[in-house]
């Protein structure tokens, strides 16, 4: 837990731009809600090729995978219910690349659509939160008594090490 908190603080206080962090959160969430497959690899490739913050991406991916243990079942049932559309099914049946991406599987299709919908709003919201944190909170947080205590604690040592 301490390591996790230290990592988050490190990333938030790093030189990475808010958009790099925002996209890392959004794509990490996208990769996390998808069952592991070719789509996940494509997202990883995108993250590797662009200057998106890797550690944030991996952190959010891991956290979302954990969250999906709870959310996968309702998402699967919801997709099964709403995907009974003749045109969609015909498109999936006649398109091998889509099947290669496993979009004919309920959970993959549902997660892909949910990820697409959430991608831009999450990226924008995350960069906004990072910007706001850096502008308004970061300096005052440094002065808090709690922060002083944390600096003296094991966490700060860990944070310093990671720096």
């Amino acid at each position: 837990m301490l390591t996790l908190l230290a990592r988050i603080l490190k990333v938030l206080n790093s030189q990475a731009s808010p958009w790099q962090l925002g996209w890392a959160v959004a794509l990490g969430l996208f990769a996390g809600i998808l069952p592991f497959g070719l789509l996940s690899l494509l997202i990883v490739l995108l993250v590797c090729l662009l200057t998106i913050n890797l550690s944030t991406f991996i952190l959010v991916w891991g956290l979302t995978e954990g969250l999906m243990l709870l959310l996968a079942d309702p998402l699967e049932r919801l997709t099964w219910h709403y995907a009974q559309n003749e045109q969609l099914l015909a498109l999936l049946a006649n398109n091998e690349p889509l099947q290669l991406l496993h979009l004919h599987h309920t959970l993959t299709l549902g997660a892909f659509l949910l990820g697409l919908i959430l991608l831009l709003p999450i990226a924008w919201l995350s960069q906004l939160l990072v910007t706001q944190y850096r502008e308004r909170v970061m300096n005052s947080v440094q002065k808090w008594k709690l922060m002083q205590m944390l600096k003296a604690s094991k966490l700060f040592t860990l944070y310093e090490k990671l720096q």
Partner: peptide, 20 residues
């Protein structure tokens, strides 16, 4: 502070290492 998202020079290498 870097402001824009650009191409990572070692991107392919990172991906190949990840994949391997």
């Amino acid at each position: 502070m870097k402001n824009a998202i650009g191409l990572r020079p070692s991107g392919w290498l990172v991906f190949i290492i990840f994949f391997a």
